[in-house]
Amino acid sequence: MIAEIKVFWSKAWRFIVTGVVSNVLFYLIYLLLLWLSVPYQIAVTICYVLGMLWGYAINKIWSWQDESPILRSATAYILAYGFIYFCHLGFVTFLVEIQQISPHWGGLASVVFLTIPLFMLLDRFVYRSPKARN
């Protein structure tokens, strides 16, 4: 039980580190796209595609140290991120259109709000058989 908790927190810590770095980077790209007058829905989509490519690679290799076949984990990753993408886009749209929050803050709020559900999906659905080592 203690070993399982240690493995869980090790994955969570690596996910947080990669998440902070990638979210800062892709949020800056999102702001740049908004500054370039790209509609926020398209900016969210561009950042999600870039984030998915980066996130899959870094999470598979470092965060979860996953050795499952790429086709299986990539398919599950795309499905998980597709679900989170629609949640994110819907939440940002709700915040911007209904709550009248700036797209800048709406995008940031949504990323923060969806972090834990994303981690749980990746841990339980995508990378189901992690290595026991840290």
Results as ranks from 00 to 15, higher is better:
Ala3Trp: 09
Ile5Ala: 13
Ile5Met: 12
Ile5Trp: 11
Lys6Leu: 09
Lys6Trp: 01
Phe8Met: 11
Phe8Asn: 09
Trp9Phe: 15
Trp9Val: 06
Ser10Gln: 13
Lys11Phe: 00
Ala12Arg: 03
Ala12Thr: 07
Trp13Leu: 15
Trp13His: 04
Trp13Asp: 00
Phe15Trp: 13
Phe15Leu: 05
Phe15Asn: 05
Ile16Trp: 06
Ile16Thr: 15
Val17Leu: 14
Val17Thr: 14
Thr18Ala: 13
Gly19Phe: 08
Gly19Glu: 09
Ser22Leu: 09
Asn23Thr: 14
Val24Ala: 14
Tyr27Phe: 11
Tyr27Asn: 04
Tyr27Ala: 04
Leu28Glu: 12
Leu28Pro: 00
Leu28Ile: 05
Ile29Asp: 04
Leu31Pro: 01
Leu31His: 05
Leu32Tyr: 10
Leu36Met: 14
Ser37Cys: 01
Val38Lys: 07
Pro39Asp: 12
Pro39Asn: 14
Pro39Tyr: 09
Tyr40Cys: 07
Tyr40Asp: 07
Gln41Ser: 03
Gln41Arg: 11
Ile42Glu: 07
Ala43Asn: 07
Ile46Leu: 10
Cys47His: 04
Tyr48Gln: 12
Tyr48Lys: 03
Tyr48Trp: 14
Val49Asn: 07
Val49His: 08
Val49Lys: 12
Val49Asp: 08
Leu50Ile: 11
Gly51Ile: 09
Met52Phe: 10
Leu53Gln: 09
Leu53Tyr: 01
Leu53Val: 15
Trp54Gln: 12
Gly55Lys: 10
Tyr56Ser: 04
Tyr56Trp: 12
Tyr56Ile: 01
Ala57Val: 14
Ile58His: 05
Asn59His: 13
Asn59Asp: 07
Asn59Gln: 12
Lys60Leu: 02
Trp62Phe: 12
Ser63Lys: 01
Ser63Tyr: 03
Gln65Thr: 03
Pro69Asn: 15
Ile70Lys: 10
Ile70Phe: 11
Leu71Trp: 15
Arg72Gly: 00
Thr75Leu: 10
Tyr77Val: 03
Tyr77Lys: 08
Tyr77Trp: 13
Ile78Met: 12
Leu79Pro: 00
Leu79Met: 12
Ala80Cys: 07
Gly82Val: 02
Gly82Glu: 10
Phe83Pro: 00
Ile84Lys: 05
Tyr85Gly: 02
Tyr85Ile: 03
Tyr85Thr: 06
Tyr85His: 04
Phe86Ala: 08
Phe86Ser: 10
Cys87Leu: 15
His88Thr: 08
His88Leu: 02
Phe91Arg: 02
Val92Ala: 05
Val92Pro: 00
Val92Ser: 02
Thr93Pro: 00
Thr93Gln: 12
Val96Arg: 11
Glu97Thr: 07
Glu97Trp: 04
Glu97Ser: 11
Ile98His: 11
Ile98Arg: 15
Gln100Lys: 13
Gln100His: 14
Gln100Ala: 12
Ser102Asn: 07
Ser102Gly: 03
Ser102Val: 02
Pro103Trp: 05
Pro103Leu: 05
Pro103Asn: 07
Pro103Phe: 03
His104Pro: 00
Trp105His: 03
Trp105Phe: 08
Gly106His: 06
Leu108Phe: 10
Ala109Ser: 14
Ser110Ile: 03
Val111Lys: 11
Val112Asp: 06
Val112Arg: 08
Val112Ala: 15
Thr115Trp: 13
Thr115Cys: 01
Met120Phe: 14
Leu122Arg: 02
Arg124Gly: 03
Phe125His: 04
Tyr127Ser: 01
Arg128Gly: 09
Arg128Cys: 02
Ser129His: 11
Pro130Arg: 09
Pro130Asp: 09
Lys131Ile: 07
Ala132Pro: 00
Arg133Trp: 15
Arg133Gly: 01
Asn134Ile: 13
